Computed example of a mutant assay.
Amino acid sequence: MKVIRSADFTGERAWAALDIANMNGITTRLHWTDQPYRWHVNDGEEVFVVLGGQVQMRYRLEGLEQSVLLEVGDIFYADLGTEHVAHPQGVARVLVIESAGSV
């Protein structure tokens, strides 16, 4: 049992992570960041939940770049093969649920 106060979590570098759980090969991690990630495709599906701040999520759909601004409480689901990149707007905290060892 543990209680995690996401607002208290900070990292020493962008995309620092706190491992919360690994359940049957699915990881749940809390990330702190103030810098964009990189364009990538996960090894499986990904659920991305904004817990603090704002994140501009860019993704490619049928070869065309799209963008959506995610606010606190918003969820982005990347299905298999979705190329995407997260751009925090300042400091952001996000919960990421994905296959263990995914990009």
Rank of each mutant, 00 (worst) to 15 (best):
V3A: 15
I4D: 14
S6N: 14
D8N: 15
D8H: 15
D8M: 12
F9K: 06
T10H: 15
T10R: 14
G11L: 10
E12S: 15
R13F: 13
A14W: 05
A14S: 14
W15F: 07
A16S: 15
A17K: 11
L18V: 14
M23H: 14
N24L: 09
I26P: 12
I26M: 15
T28D: 11
T28Y: 06
R29H: 14
R29G: 13
L30V: 12
H31T: 10
W32A: 11
T33E: 06
T33G: 03
D34M: 11
Q35S: 13
P36I: 04
Y37H: 04
R38E: 09
W39R: 03
H40A: 02
V41I: 07
G44K: 01
E45W: 05
E46R: 05
V47G: 05
V49L: 14
V49G: 04
V49Y: 09
V50A: 07
V50E: 09
L51R: 08
G53W: 02
Q54N: 08
Q54C: 05
Q54I: 06
V55Q: 02
V55M: 06
R58I: 00
R60F: 00
L61S: 03
E62Y: 00
G63S: 05
L64R: 12
L64E: 08
L64A: 07
S67A: 09
V68S: 02
V68N: 02
L70T: 06
E71D: 14
V72I: 10
V72G: 07
V72T: 11
G73Q: 12
I75Q: 09
Y77G: 03
Y77W: 11
D79S: 12
D79C: 07
G81R: 04
T82H: 03
E83P: 01
V85W: 00
V85N: 05
V85L: 03
V85I: 09
V85P: 01
V85C: 08
V85M: 04
V85G: 01
H87Y: 12
H87P: 02
H87R: 03
P88A: 09
P88F: 04
P88R: 05
P88S: 11
P88C: 10
G90S: 09
A92I: 08
R93D: 13
V94Y: 12
V96M: 10
V96S: 13
V96P: 08
V96L: 11
V96W: 07
E98D: 13
S99P: 10
S99N: 12
A100I: 11
G101W: 04
S102F: 04
S102D: 13
